[in-house]
Design a protein around this nucleic acid. Structure first.
Lengths: 195, 195
DNA sequence: CGCGGGTTTGATGATGCTCAAGCCCGGTGG
DNA sequence: CCACCGGGCTTGAGCATCATCAAACCCGCG
């Protein structure tokens, strides 16, 4: 389980991390398993952990007054999950995070994360890289949401993150795209004919 | 002009920065003035500077095939402007940034920024704080874009950033909200009657 | 075999867009 | 000082897109 994290670190830094450094990292993270449809985080809680997914698939979403779910983020192997607003500012979250597949996580709390950033420079670089990428991805998603039609957003997602279509059901993808499941179904039908 | 930056730094760190440190900062930033409707960045260029706005109002947007502008971000005094994807990865940008009001900026390139982060700890903390806030704001905007109706997005923006309505024309606000100017006009009409 | 979650399909309607015209108002020049 | 101009805003009519509701379908699984 920790091996996945080590691989991830080596890959993103482009060098092999020392055994000593990795020992520190190992101590800071707690493993956790979570079953299908179980919650990692629920509305109103404070998000206490930043979680690295070593196996599985999760989603982060809100539930509105009508009970409709709105998916803001998906996560699979080698992705980090947390409501960063709640995690970093220690305020109650508005999100739910649950597992769609059986999922294995490595969790770190903010105290340990701060400590790790200060003692293992690699870890600092890593989190910064992660934050940078998250922001860029978020910016792209905003652009797509305000500039593109439903159909264009679908094609964009298919290009950027085809893996989501293999791991999550269509109604969740629809929610992620901000459209109804029926509309997504009809859009896809179009593309089945025309290729 | 530099005073605005100093005030901003002191405010966000909660302490007064030393004269020595601020001297370093001053040397790293280049002042720039930019007139109404002039470009700070154009599609295809690489974004070479991170700019701190000391006075004025700007927007970041794309132009689609039909020539329609899509505003992804506004910036006013004490905000930072840049296409971070282009700035940090040194890739050509898809955005335009131009000034809506007469604007004064302090610009820093990535070399100087990296140097400053390493020599002035305050500066490192500041950029991290800025990045954190940007990400959280982006996440909120995504949530609003996929979960809310045009009307709800309008009310949300009115609550979160009323200042935009004072500084930018309605058609740009509409674009920022991802709706047509006509729709925004009609939504606003509703709220004039009902209060 | 029947159940349940997910998907598809159809009919209908709401929401928001487009196009076009008119209005408002601040700025400019005669 | 007034007429005119242009940019932005409003209003209306018609239309496209997408949501909603309901029913049927599909398929893996107990």
């Amino acid at each position: 389980m920790y091996l996945a994290l080590r691989k991830y670190i080596d890959q993103y830094t482009g060098t092999a991390i020392s055994d000593d450094d990795f020992e520190l990292i190992k101590k800071a993270f707690i493993p956790k398993k979570i079953r299908r449809k179980q919650y990692l985080l629920q509305e109103g809680e404070v998000c206490k952990y930043l979680s690295f997914i070593t196996r599985g698939a999760m989603r982060q979403y809100t539930v509105d007054d009508k009970g409709i779910e709105h998916v803001v983020r998906f996560g699979i192997e080698n992705w980090w999950m947390a409501d960063r607003e709640s995690f970093e500012l220690a305020v109650p979250t508005i999100y739910y995070i649950d597992a769609w597949e059986e999922t294995e996580l490595l969790q770190i709390n903010s105290t340990n994360l701060r400590y790790l950033k200060n003692t293992v420079p690699t870890m600092k670089a890593l989190t910064q890289e992660m934050e940078k990428r998250s922001y860029i991805a978020a910016q792209k998603r905003i652009h797509s949401a305000i500039s593109l039609t439903a159909e264009e957003r679908y094609l964009d997602l298919l290009k950027q993150n085809p893996v989501f279509f293999q791991r999550f059901p269509q109604n969740m993808i629809a929610s992620y795209l901000g459209i109804s499941p029926e509309t997504l179904s009809r859009i896809r039908k179009n593309y089945l004919h025309s290729n």
